[in-house]
Computed example of a mutant assay.
Amino acid sequence: MSALGFNNSLGIHPTALTTRAERSEVLANNLANSDTPGFKARDFDFQAVLRGEVEQRRSLSVNRTNARHLEGRATAEQQLDFRVPHQPAIDGNTVDPHYEHAQFTENALSYDASFEFLNSKFMGLRNALRGE
């Protein structure tokens, strides 16, 4: 008989939430540097990072030397690439503020959706534990 654990009940959603937060930081950094000469916009493919997480969970088992050690996790920063500019500025800056705002907004909406999903899962688990 297998015990019901958070990983089984929540699936990939906590990782998706963390990855969305990491992407928000990258996109906000791009926007903050939109007027910095020579700044190169960066981003990562959310789906590719998430696929990597799923594959890592399936194929790798990290050998921990102590039960209190945290499990290893590949970060989105390892897959951070420079964005190919639509029209680079004369000063070498590759940030397109309109595009970055659109990406940031889309990412924020997806983050909120993931957060709401996890919140409803936790509410369901809490109600199940209380017998409601």
Rank of each mutant, 00 (worst) to 15 (best):
F6V: 00
L10T: 08
K40L: 09
P37S: 06
T18Q: 13
K121R: 15
M123C: 10
P97M: 09
N119T: 15
A41I: 03
T19S: 04
R20D: 01
R20F: 10
T105N: 15
R68C: 00
D43K: 02
V26L: 05
A74W: 10
V54C: 04
R83P: 00
A48Q: 11
G11M: 05
S2K: 09
F82S: 06
L27T: 02
R58N: 13
F44V: 07
G124F: 12
E22Q: 12
D81Q: 14
A3F: 11
T19G: 02
Y111P: 04
G131I: 13
G38C: 07
V62A: 11
R68Q: 10
F115Q: 15
N119Q: 15
R23H: 03
Q103K: 10
T94L: 03
D81G: 08
N119P: 07
L70T: 01
G124L: 15
D45P: 05
P88T: 02
A89G: 08
E116K: 15
A41G: 03
S9A: 14
Q103M: 11
L4N: 10
F122W: 12
G92L: 04
D96V: 01
E53Y: 11
H98Y: 03
P37A: 06
Q47P: 01
R20P: 00
N7D: 12
T36D: 06
L10D: 01
F39Y: 15
D81C: 12
D43H: 07
N66Q: 02
K121D: 04
G124S: 14
R64W: 01
Y111C: 08
E100A: 06
G38V: 04
N8H: 09
G11P: 01
E100I: 05
M1R: 07
H98N: 09
S59P: 00
A108F: 12
R83C: 03
T18K: 14
E53A: 12
L125T: 07
A67V: 07
G92D: 04
D43C: 04
L70G: 01
G11N: 03
A128W: 12
F104N: 05
S59L: 14
E100C: 04
H98I: 13
L50K: 02
S24P: 00
Q87P: 03
S114Q: 10
E53I: 08
G124I: 08
N8T: 12
V54L: 13
D112S: 09
M1F: 09
E22H: 06
S61K: 13
V95T: 02
L129Y: 11
R130M: 14
N66T: 00
L80R: 01
N119F: 13
A67E: 04
R51K: 13
P14E: 08
